[in-house]
Design a protein around this nucleic acid. Structure first.
Lengths: 207, 207
DNA sequence: GTCTATATAAGGATAGAC
DNA sequence: GTCTATCCTTATATAGAC
């Protein structure tokens, strides 16, 4: 194992794109901004990705493959260790995303990119995400529904929707809450996650 | 009062921009798309608004001036009729937005535009919205805090943030839930609103 | 795989006639 | 207040040398 890590041109482009997409959105970010930020040649993005649309997809794939596996593994573990309990399921969804934001190798921008995607009506992007990662959400929906047999189907759908909105915004740090200077990034995020689980859990179980 | 309503060029541009911004985002919508959609000349947008940025601001102003007033009036009424109760405050926030989506004169796209704005990191836009409409959110925060004296300040801030996320996404109808054919648009929206109030109320009051 | 140079289209904005 | 025509910038994408 080498002490110095060599980031390939491809990786550099993906990271730069991730940062910029988080900040300016997909349409609001040009490939020139990406390649300048990544310190690579403008032609490299087309050589490695073929098109801007494909670059966007690959930004998602790089993180979501791993995130989805971690979430599903955590879900299986939660169902095994705490069967019938809601909060461990919510934690299984939130904590892997949280650890991504705390990862030294970046990823903190990615949760904002995810929130962007949520707001995006782009059919091609939605189809890509739904085709490749829709099964994760379906697994979680099923597990949550099993914990809440008394909630009607339509009402539960709504609540899952509200929960997704709350999670997305909170994780993306779009809100008003700034981390106090005395608090570490890690402690701040973990407090956010536990507050989120309490909120969503109570909301889902309402009445 | 005339039976035929004449929509001015300015209004037509605003409505077209609203629709397109909801669908493609601010950066993703070109002024040419806007003027084509509005069936006006390309030069008209510059004549009436001066710049794209200002057009964006005016799209917000057209709806938010009225929406903010309705929300604040409903809040005052809620505090007068149901002092100390949380749910009427939440209703005062949600229902005026809901009625906007049901308005015949459009406005259904606007709630999606609001969600777009929430995801936007654009400092200029955020400043415009905060300067002009931040006081509304502060009034609601204050009223909600007064209902929940036992919740710590930081925890409450988090929960308001989660609530905002849930409200924004749900109102923008970004979720998975499609209206059943047998249900009217109005009934569907009102069910969503009451589900939302139950969810947010329980989440805010958790523990 | 990486560069320069460029093709080609689309973008925001404006000048000036009507 | 509305039009045509156009300026200038920026965009995505690619061709072809190295």
């Amino acid at each position: 194992m080498s002490a110095t890590v060599h980031f390939s041109t491809k990786e550099r482009i993906l990271s730069a794109a991730e940062d910029l997409f988080a900040q300016f959105g997909f349409a609001g970010t040009s490939l020139r901004q990406v390649t300048t930020h990544a310190e690579v040649n403008i032609a490299a993005v087309n050589y490695h990705f073929g098109s801007k649309e494909n670059l966007v997809n690959e930004v998602f794939r790089r993180r979501l493959d791993e995130l989805s596996e971690k979430r599903l593994a955590a879900l299986r573990e939660a169902l095994r260790v705490h069967p019938g309990e809601l909060d461990p399921i919510l934690a299984a969804f939130i904590e892997p995303a949280l650890s991504l934001t705390l990862d030294r190798h970046g990823g903190s921008a990615f949760v904002r990119v995810l929130a962007r995607a949520y707001a995006e009506k782009n059919e091609r992007l939605r189809k890509f995400l739904s085709d490749n990662y829709g099964h994760v959400l379906r697994e979680f929906s099923k597990a949550i529904a099993a914990c809440l047999p008394s909630i009607g189907k339509e009402e539960l759908y709504w609540r899952l929707d509200f929960t997704a909105g709350a999670l997305t915004y909170a994780m993306a740090d779009f809100g008003l809450i700034r981390r106090p200077a005395a608090t570490t990034e890690k402690a701040h995020s973990q407090r956010a996650a536990s507050a989120l689980i309490r909120f969503a859990s109570a909301g889902l179980r309402a009445e």
